[in-house]
Write a protein that binds this DNA or RNA. Structure first.
Lengths: 211, 211
DNA sequence: TATCATACCTGCTTA
DNA sequence: CTAAGCAGGTATGAT
């Protein structure tokens, strides 16, 4: 269950491009931007693979060996936008479907980042170093305008909204997830609730509340 | 639909081990018993492979070459419990899943023996000679005790029971199936009904009635 | 083109 | 909690 809260941002005017990208998880810090993809349901589903559009793959990524089996393909190592973690994906060409795919390791990324259809993954490079990052799409959930209220009343407002929600089964390790989210900067912990964070073109603060 | 009939055995005292094993399809005639496996749906399905539990494989079977492709694996030749037929299976180690498998040839065995999930395959050896045998699982159907009745009343009893059963769709070739079953000694044709045969530790005659 | 066979892969499950 | 085993898959070449 997801709910989008729209709060008026305290900042005035359009935010600068760099800060917005940073908060949105776009990998603009590394030098060379390669490509992005808005992931499909298949990319984040049970097929455990990401299809890399052919023209992008051939333009930006090293050619994987077209051999079948373990001899074929390549293992690509991507760094997190913060350079902390490394993600290893098997990268192959599937001759049957004439397409380039990330296979092994991809499903873990989907799970760890809780990637959903419509989200965007972006690939960058800094010399030989590869980077991956992702950002949430704007959810098509109902937008609930929340009036700006004094801080002492905010908790009460959130609780009122929460009471209208059905709580989904909790993830395996709540603590782990919260910590990961907090570190990634894509989640804001507020009033004991993890809030997903997105910045819009408009000077709004969009909070995706995942319960 | 399956029904288990329990009849008191005419023989007195515990039956001798050899005869019981023989009737159950266990390969006790060859000297050294290796291991058994209750086959899973995957083992008899379209994956065309039998997973050999690792500890059993490493204890009893020769180490297959761990190379991929035709260079890897071994071909193992198994004799029927009667020593008549020989079954050749490719035996490999799949490093990706860390498991030992019988591949090529296995699906033919499944088909020829009409092996189903829950059935048991047993592997034995007599020196260098390898044996394979299988037996039907005991169906998890309700056990219906049938009192011992004079032979002239038995047919009537069975018919009375049959009337309470729902008849499942017939197998592909009934005649072929009956002949195969009769030859294998794993089925007893009685009153025009094929009965699967198992012997229990108790001096009971257990009949699995498959309708 | 359909089917089979090999070799990959992965989420559960459990010790 | 972690790691390993394995049941159940997919991908793709061979036939």
């Amino acid at each position: 269950m997801a709910l989008t809260l729209v709060l008026e941002s305290g900042s005035s005017g359009p935010s600068d491009d760099g800060r917005r990208r940073e908060a949105a998880g776009d990998c603009s810090r590394p030098r060379e931007r390669m490509f992005e993809k808005v992931v499909t349901p298949s990319d984040v589903g049970k097929l455990n693979r990401l299809v890399v559009p052919k023209h992008l793959a051939e333009k930006h990524l090293p050619l994987p060996l077209p051999l079948p089996g373990a001899a074929g393909g390549t293992v690509l190592c991507f760094h997190d936008a913060r350079g902390e973690a490394a993600w290893r994906f098997r990268y192959s060409y599937w001759s049957s479907s004439q397409s380039y795919v990330m296979t092994k390791g991809w499903s873990r990324y989907v799970r760890d980042k809780r990637l959903a259809a419509g989200d965007t993954v972006s690939f960058c490079r800094d010399g030989a170093r590869l980077y991956i990052d992702c950002r949430r799409r704007r959810r098509p959930a109902a937008v609930v305008p929340v009036p700006v209220v004094p801080p002492q009343q905010q908790q009460a407002s959130l609780q009122a909204v929460q009471q209208r929600l059905v709580v989904a089964p909790p993830p395996r390790s709540m603590k782990e997830e919260e910590e990961e989210e907090a570190r990634s900067g894509r989640c804001l912990r507020l009033f004991g609730v993890n809030l997903e964070l997105e910045l819009e073109p408009e000077p709004l603060l969009l909070l995706d509340l995942q319960l």
